[in-house]
């Protein structure tokens, strides 16, 4: 009798959870691979202004960024404290903007070219002079759709 009961106890199967960590790790790697980190290293520091009537920029591939602000702390010696323009990974002069944006557009898909949106990410303390100059350059480059980057005001 005792022998039979012992046998019966042994039969209870246990679900192996050994593969669970692997599954979760796979998820983890998936997320780590897909979430893009910031595209460029900022050479200017900026806090975008606040506004309420914001629209989302849907397609990332259509958007090009222009950063405007004062150079970051360890570039102050080299570039001073005046507001500078950064496109991609380099500082740009105002009169280079047209050329650079045109180049950016050339590298885009033929279908997407007219849909280019230029997002101006500028520090809220920037003087409008710089922004106006950029806008004039963008007009010359026929990049007419722009977006003033801002954060949602609560």
């Amino acid at each position: 009798m005792a022998k039979i009961r012992k046998k019966g106890e042994k039969v209870v199967p246990e679900i192996s959870t050994a593969s669970l960590p692997d599954i979760i790790f796979m998820l983890l790697f998936f997320f780590m691979a897909t979430t893009s980190m910031k595209e460029v290293s900022y050479m200017v520091k900026f806090t975008v202004p606040e506004a309420t009537e914001l629209q989302k920029l849907e397609k990332k591939t259509l958007v090009r960024h222009i950063y405007v602000g004062k150079p970051i702390a360890n570039l102050v010696k080299l570039h001073g404290t005046e507001s500078r323009i950064q496109i991609d990974d380099e500082f740009a002069d105002v009169n280079q903007v047209e050329e650079l944006i045109t180049l950016e557009r050339e590298s885009m898909n033929e279908v997407d070219k007219p849909k280019l949106i230029v997002s101006i990410k500028a520090d809220k303390e920037t003087k409008m002079g710089v922004i106006t100059d950029i806008k004039q350059e963008l007009r010359k480059a026929y990049a007419l759709k722009i977006s003033y980057a801002a954060t949602q005001r609560q």
Binding site: L20, L28, F31, S36, K56, L144, K145, I146, A149
Partner: peptide, 30 residues
Amino acid sequence: ADISFLLLVFFLVTTSMAVNKGLIRKLPPP
């Protein structure tokens, strides 16, 4: 599993899904 879940959550929270929001305007042609 719990440990890796914790890691997963940590990464989900810290990676800012850089939301591109802005005031969209049209410029006049030159």
